[in-house]
Design a protein around this nucleic acid. Structure first.
Length: 211
DNA sequence: GACCAGGTCCTTG
DNA sequence: CAAGGACATGGT
């Protein structure tokens, strides 16, 4: 029943908010969020931070710069994030899309969220999670990010749905406030890193964090 | 040395 | 449509 799922999701969000409070997460300008969203695919954030630093040192931490840069150079700078040839190609594709369609990242801010999302999803290498990360953290839109952690925590709590259905469930429960979206996803990731080992996650969040 | 990380795409059965 | 493999480096 989706009624019971909604109730559980409210509980999860309430407990996490009480436990982690106002954490700040994924700082940086829109360019950096977009680049980071590609680089963090299946990769620890520590390695992504290094790569972003490498790009910044060479003044390549923007889509306009990446659009004009040599792929070999980008590859060296993002190598520490793994899948570096693949990610370099994805960054170039994303940069080409943005520069050729909008002319600049700033020019995208006038676009409504659903059209922004549809455009991003057409890019090879930008799936739902990457697109929603960009919308939520890069453009402060109320588009909730569902990742493997969210799926796992929900699953632990008996909420078994596909990712797009989970997205709808969370968005129906959350207030229409981009900061609430940003915080909620950050809470989920922080919780999961702390409590959900890969093999065993049999202690439910509702038990771990009970007041 | 084995195993996994804030995914996505492509190929198979 | 579910499942499995490829992509690759760095940390435990």
């Amino acid at each position: 029943m989706s009624g019971s799922s909604s109730f559980k999701i409210r509980e999860i969000l309430r407990i996490l908010a009480g436990h982690y409070g106002n954490i700040s997460w994924w700082p940086g300008d829109t360019d950096e969020v977009m680049i980071g969203a590609i680089l963090t695919q299946q990769t620890r954030w520590e390695n992504v931070r290094k790569a972003l630093g490498n790009l910044r040192d060479r003044n390549l931490c923007s889509l306009s710069a990446i659009h004009g840069a040599d792929s070999g150079e980008i590859g060296e700078l993002v190598r520490c994030t793994g899948f570096y040839r693949l990610k370099t190609h994805r960054l170039k594709t994303l940069a080409a899309y943005v520069m050729e369609t909008y002319g600049s990242v700033d020019a995208m801010t006038g676009e409504p969220s659903d059209r922004l999302r549809a455009g991003l999803l057409k890019i090879k290498g930008v799936g739902a999670e990457t697109a929603d990360s960009i919308l939520c953290y890069g453009f402060s839109r109320t588009s909730f990010v569902i990742d493997a952690y969210t799926e796992k925590i929900c699953s632990c709590c008996g909420i078994l749905h596909r990712r797009d259905q989970l997205k709808t469930l969370f968005e129906d429960v959350l207030p229409q406030d981009p900061d609430a979206y940003k915080r909620a996803h950050a809470h989920i990731v922080e919780y999961a890193k702390e409590y959900c080992g890969k093999k065993r996650c049999n202690e439910c969040i509702l038990e771990n964090l009970k007041e």
